[in-house]
Write a protein that binds this DNA or RNA. Structure first.
Lengths: 144, 144
DNA sequence: CTATGAGCTAGAGTCGACTCTAGGTCAAGG
DNA sequence: CCTTGACCTAGAGTCGACTCTAGCTCATAG
């Protein structure tokens, strides 16, 4: 490999076209996962193809993927993301539906946060007990 | 069925013995899940058995299950819970190890909460945009 | 001119956490 | 006596989300 020329050699002719490998690197998803997401219809549109049928991702695709990643991280299942993606694909006019999906999800995220806070206080309680039983003479209370 | 007598008919002779069905009801876990958890070694001890080999749970078992449920809810995998249960089973003297497990898990829970807050602000942002595009004449910004 | 590397498709495999089925025991009720 | 209901074990099946494999096409480098 000569100097740094993989940048557009890997992408398509356009300046902002990214190969699947580059997208994997930037998003943290594997190339497998990227193809899988596409098959599952979670992408807003079916990805352009370049020479030899290779995927060419735009900056927009990256942005959309970032959203998907956040939604996944907050526990939204792929079918729900696909549903949302379909609405986006259909263009404006279905804001009500999109809103409904997001509001529902927001509720779940809020619930999750609340749950995690409960867990956190349980865990912190246990940590305190153990720290205590280490500082004092090994067994302070019988709590496990 | 006459009056209310299933209470101790289902349990063992002892006052505080609970059948698997009762525990399922109280914990929200299925009887299948309860047996599965036992096989996986997440219970602090292997559960007493009553007439005909039936499981008899104590109040202590219920308490422990409540802890397990919280740990699961916060994403701790079953093998990790089993590890922790093993330490508890071994009795006092391994507080350091228990502490390490709990501290590590606490970190993950804190990370999760942070992540969820990020997701939440993304979602709230989208909700605002959609609410805006509904109030005004249908399309305010091009954002999806 | 071959070898390497990135990409492609279709489809099989994996993993965690359950969930369900089959086939059996036992006690109480009609 | 026979059925019903709660329980038992061992093991198979499911589901979501990936992950990996096999077998292929190209383009560029040595």
């Amino acid at each position: 490999m000569g100097s740094g020329m993989g940048v557009d050699a890997a992408g398509a002719a356009a300046g902002t076209g990214l190969s699947i490998g580059q997208v994997a690197e930037r998003t943290g998803l594997s190339v497998h996962a990227l193809r899988f997401y596409e098959r599952e219809g979670v992408l807003a549109d079916p990805v352009r193809r370049g020479a030899g049928g290779r995927r060419v991702y735009s900056e927009y695709d990256i942005d959309w993927l970032a959203v998907c990643i956040k939604l996944r991280a907050s526990g939204m299942p792929l079918p729900a993301i696909r549903q949302y993606a379909e609405l986006v694909r259909q263009g404006p006019g279905n804001e009500q539906a999109r809103l409904a999906i997001m509001r529902e999800h927001r509720e779940r995220v809020i619930d999750q946060i609340a749950q995690l806070h409960e867990c956190l206080s349980l865990i912190s309680g246990k940590i305190e007990v153990y720290e205590g039983s280490l500082v004092t003479g090994e067994s302070c209370i019988v709590a496990d």
